[in-house]
Structure formats: structure tokens, C-alpha cells
Design a protein around this nucleic acid. Structure first.
Lengths: 136, 136
DNA sequence: GTACGTGCAAACAATTTGCATAGAG
DNA sequence: CTCTATGCAAATTGTTTGCACGTAC
């Protein structure tokens, strides 16, 4: 069961309103969010700096991960919670050119990529841009 | 033949020292460069703003492309020059966790990815992180 | 000579840091 | 009560814009 309180608990983080609200926002929106998205929604409740710090805390705890974005803005999305220790190291994201939303495609498996000799792979992330079902 | 002068010519851009030097730097380094990398190397010769504007000009002309990076910094790399009109829309980049360098793996082909129903793909880019031959 | 590139100043945006206080456990 | 999270101010860094001048062509 995924709820903000549980997530914080399982990572041994203190339960605070800001943290709960930010996780809730990720759960509600289901797309990658930038700091600015969160700020817009929560600025009346929390300081901009607190949001930055919360995001960094969540990053360290692998509660969220960075989502690559061609726009230069740093975006974040919740990590899939199933694999607690063995974080999933393959991210496939889709960014719609029309609505601008980026979402994780969890169920897509990344085909193996053969690297040139000498390269050691640790993590892969694929960003596909195009048009999402809602916008086509 | 790839040289700075030729590249500018073929894109009908004016030949200026700043543009020549920046292209040369990309050719010399063979890794993705951020504005700060170029600034560090060229600040005695050119203004910070000029470097920003040159990078944007090159982007528009498809002389360089953005390289996705998990560090948040915007990095750029030369486009492969073979396909003039039909720009390559599949980028595979490798970022070494040790030296931090990101390079294009031109010869790797990106395996096809099957998207869920309704998604239309236009462009794909893959970032692999790990350890490069130099650092292992 | 004309149009575009550059330098400089300044505005603007994104992110980080220091410190005092408030709040979680 | 103790330790950490938050708010506020300010510093730092990344990026864009306006304008006057210089230069490629």
C-alpha cells in the first residue's frame, strides 16, 4: 500500500506536513514534477527552500529519482516502491511534446544494449519524446 | 572532413573567432561540454554571454545537441556531421561516474522500444551511466 | 555599407548556505 | 529534551535581455 505516511516511515524520516504534501502531490499527478511545479502548488504552505531540501532528502533516500529532461529543468518522479533495496536501475520516461508532461513507463523493459569494450554499465535511462495518448 | 571553418560555412554562419574556438574545443575534447567548461577555457578571450549565444546558435543550426545529464548541468556535444538533413534522432550517451565525462556512443544502435498503445515516438535518447574504459 | 556578432551591464531564474527558531519523536 | 526540519535572508550560480559598438561579408 502506497501512502505518504508509510513511505516516510519506511525510510525512517520524520513525518512532516511538507514531506507528506510533496509525496501526495507526486501520487496525485503521476507525472514528473519540477521544483517549480511543487512550488506553485505549495508555496502558500511552505518555503521554496524547504521544497528544495525536501527533494534532496528524498533523492538521497531513493524515494524519488531524477527524470532526464531535454528542457533543462530538473524533474523528479517517485521511484517504484516494490523493490526496496534493489532499486530499479532502468528508467524509461516518455515526454509529450504537446502537453509537456513526462511520465514513467514502468512496464516497458529496456532491451539490452551492448556497450563497446571496456565500458561497465551501472544504470540506464531512456527518454522517449513524442505524443502521448491524451494529446494525439 | 571536419574542421570548424567548414562546419560554419556549411551552415551559412559567419566565421568568427569565438565560433571557431568553441567548435575546436568540442573537436579536441570529444566529450559533452557544459557552458562552464567552455567558459573556463575561453573566458580570457570571450565573454560569458557570447558563449551562451554561440551555443544557442549552434543548437538552432543542429551543429550541437543537448546531452541529457543527471547532474542538472546542461551539456552539449557535436552532432554527427554525416547526416546533414536527416539529423540523427537517436542519441546514446555514456556518463562515467568516476571522471564525470559524458561521451557519445555513435556506433551503438538503440534497440527498438515498444511503447504502450497510443504513444507516438519521435525521438529517443539513452543515457547509460557506469565506468568508462579509462577509469576501470 | 549593412546586418549580424560581441562586450558590458543588468535583469532574471535556479539552487545553495547560514543561522535562529519551531516542531517531531 | 534532543535533534532535525523549517523559514527567512542572503550568497552563489546559471541564463537571458538591451543596447552600443565592432566586424564579417
Amino acid at each position: 500500500m502506497v501512502n505518504p505516511h508509510t513511505i516516510l516511515k519506511s525510510h525512517k524520516l520524520r513525518i512532516t506536513d511538507c514531506r507528506l504534501d510533496i509525496i501526495q502531490e507526486f501520487l496525485d499527478r503521476q507525472v514528473a514534477l519540477a521544483h517549480s511545479d511543487l512550488e506553485e502548488k505549495l508555496k502558500s504552505n511552505f518555503d521554496r527552500v524547504t521544497i528544495y531540501r525536501t527533494l534532496n532528502t528524498f533523492l538521497e533516500q531513493d524515494i524519488i529519482h531524477k527524470v532526464l529532461d531535454d528542457s533543462g529543468a530538473t524533474k523528479y518522479a517517485l521511484c517504484s516502491h516494490e523493490d526496496e533495496h534493489d532499486h530499479d536501475h532502468e528508467h524509461v520516461h516518455f515526454k509529450c511534446e504537446v502537453c509537456g508532461d513526462t511520465s514513467c513507463l514502468e512496464d516497458i523493459s529496456l532491451p539490452g544494449v551492448k556497450l563497446p569494450k571496456g565500458y561497465k554499465k551501472r544504470e540506464m535511462s531512456l527518454l522517449v519524446t513524442g505524443i502521448c495518448p491524451k494529446c494525439s
